[in-house]
């Protein structure tokens, strides 16, 4: 297969970026999107040009490291997959493919298609955990959890933190990411103890970092490679309202 690639090139965080045209040929339809970029990079090295930088790691859709905005869609045209699991057979021969990095104020570009997503880590550090230290915990079975809740918590917890929700959202909002973590813990009895402070701290950090607000368009849900449900955002809102109106400090 043959493609015309339109790739965002940017030397470093401060430089001005631009779109560069590349033509690529002889691509097997079974080739993954990132492998196609590997081939492009090898050809660039052959021509003494600088290869295109892009983040990737596990290449099996679980680490959340890869993420490209391809032809107007985070992680490209296939649904329920990350960029590394997207295959070239999803494109038509000769198609022009425009590849852009995630764009959001809290995700500054490092180089080419690589962005800095440490904002997500900062949100988690505000309260995306249960404050236990190692040792001194009770037996696993002494906290019974209904199967339904455990399954729901698992669904929320399957977020891979890739940032597609932010990239796809017209407001660059991180609500799906935050809500997945808040939901996971608010569904589990272990997480209930810190639930009220957790939701407030995480939301305020999210706002502080410059993510946009949610306007319930659910582009995040549509592009999430792990199909995290927007129900989690509703749960986050509910937790937030409860926390704001009933937190101990108020009374």
């Amino acid at each position: 297969m043959k493609f015309k690639l339109n790739i965002w090139r940017q030397k470093d965080a401060k430089s001005k970026g631009y779109f560069q045209r590349y033509d690529i040929d002889n691509i097997s339809p079974d080739c993954s999107f990132l492998e196609m970029l590997d081939i492009l990079n090898e050809s660039l090295v052959d021509k003494f040009e600088h290869p295109v930088c892009f983040d990737n790691d596990c290449r099996e859709g679980i680490c959340g490291m890869c993420g490209l905005y391809i032809n107007g869609q985070a992680h490209g045209p296939d649904s329920g997959v990350t960029t590394c699991q997207l295959h070239m057979r999803r494109f038509t021969d000769g198609q022009t493919i425009t590849i852009e990095p995630w764009r959001a104020k809290p995700f500054p570009i490092i180089k080419d298609l690589v962005v800095d997503r440490s904002a997500f880590d900062k949100i988690i550090q505000e309260g995306g955990y249960i404050s236990v230290t190692t040792g001194g915990v009770v037996d696993g079975n002494s906290i019974p959890i209904s199967k339904e809740k455990a399954d729901k918590a698992m669904d929320a917890a399957s977020c891979i933190g890739c940032g597609a929700c932010v990239a796809a959202c017209k407001n660059a909002s991180a609500m799906l990411f935050v809500s997945a973590k808040v939901s996971q813990f608010s569904l589990l009895p272990q997480g209930k103890i810190e639930a009220k402070t957790r939701v407030q701290k995480m939301v305020s950090k999210m706002n502080e970092l410059g993510f946009g607000g949610c306007t319930n368009t659910y582009a995040c849900q549509a592009e999430c490679p792990k199909s995290i449900s927007r129900e989690n955002i509703a749960r986050l809102n509910r937790e937030f309202i409860i926390a704001k109106t009933t937190s101990e400090e108020l009374f």
Partner: peptide, 18 residues
């Protein structure tokens, strides 16, 4: 506020199903 959460816009408009 939401507009400024993405100071640099995408070249290709967001095509996600909404």
């Amino acid at each position: 506020e939401n507009f400024f959460a993405r100071p640099v816009r995408y070249k290709v408009r967001i095509k996600s199903k909404t």
